[in-house]
Design a protein around this nucleic acid. Structure first.
Lengths: 146, 146
DNA sequence: TATTGTTATACTCTATAACTATA
DNA sequence: TATAGTTATAGAGTATAACAATA
């Protein structure tokens, strides 16, 4: 267990982080329970919820997937009635993806259910640990973006 | 951005953590570069490196995958000559998975290369952030185990 | 009967390459 | 020509169900 880090520990920290990250993500992905929305789909819905209507390209860049992969996700979400494709006002090549009313509702609802167990786990941690986790959030984001 | 947490922030923290975790894990999985060993395979090798010979069941439990999924991984690793299946001394049903010499070497070698970019990213962080990350490691492990 | 591991099979997510429409 | 998005196709990773061997 590492609780202090200096330069020499960075490779060890990297190795441990990689394993812990993969295992935690796997655990998270399994927690879709009985619901029909996948973790990736929910992430896209959340992005649209925060950012408003966006182009597939912008969403794909944020999600770190290739455009064809996102097309699939969007088609699935559209079939569920959660997003809609609307024409871009100025550029005929582009498409704007927007949440439908059901999409907005789904974000709130699914999140509250999906995050329930995670919030439960987090509530078992000490305030110090949660604060550390909040700081680590930024680190995780920068890892994703690097 | 959340930097302080109290009880009311836990659901928000959970939602942000889920997204950040999934994106970071996706980034990590992509970073196999030119090498032939996948992130999941390396994780298994690392487990055997730490723990010594183990049964498929124990490995699957730690990796949070089902036994048939692990069988696939083990077959791939065996085909690469990195692990071997040896008979269990007392129980004919069980199998012990052990690293070969090449397997031990692969862990060290692949890790140093694979984690190079992650270590590079981590080295760009402040000591405070790395300490927070180390603490968050424990949290990630407990999430994976819950 | 219960347990360990594997085989058979299928689903999800992701990618690259090729295509269409628009700029 | 260059860009945005989609379609076609394939590969990796995972799961459930059924099976064989052993306890």
């Amino acid at each position: 267990m590492i609780h202090e880090t200096d330069a020499a520990d960075i490779p060890a920290l990297a190795a441990e982080l990689r394993t812990a990250l993969l295992r935690a993500a796997r655990r998270l992905r399994v927690e879709r329970s009985d619901e029909e929305i996948s973790a990736g789909q929910l992430s896209v819905l959340g992005f649209l919820h925060r950012e408003g209507p966006s182009t597939p390209r912008a969403i794909a860049a944020f999600e770190r997937v290739r455009p064809p992969s996102l097309t699939r996700t969007l088609t699935a979400l559209q079939d569920l009635g959660l997003v809609e494709r609307v024409a871009h006002p100025h550029d005929g090549r582009q498409v704007l993806i927007a949440l439908t009313g059901a999409g907005h509702a789904a974000v709130t609802l699914t999140r509250s259910r999906r995050d329930a167990w995670l919030a439960q786990v987090l509530s078992g941690f000490s305030p110090v640990e949660r604060t550390a986790l909040a700081t680590a959030l930024d680190v995780l984001r920068r890892i994703a973006d690097s």
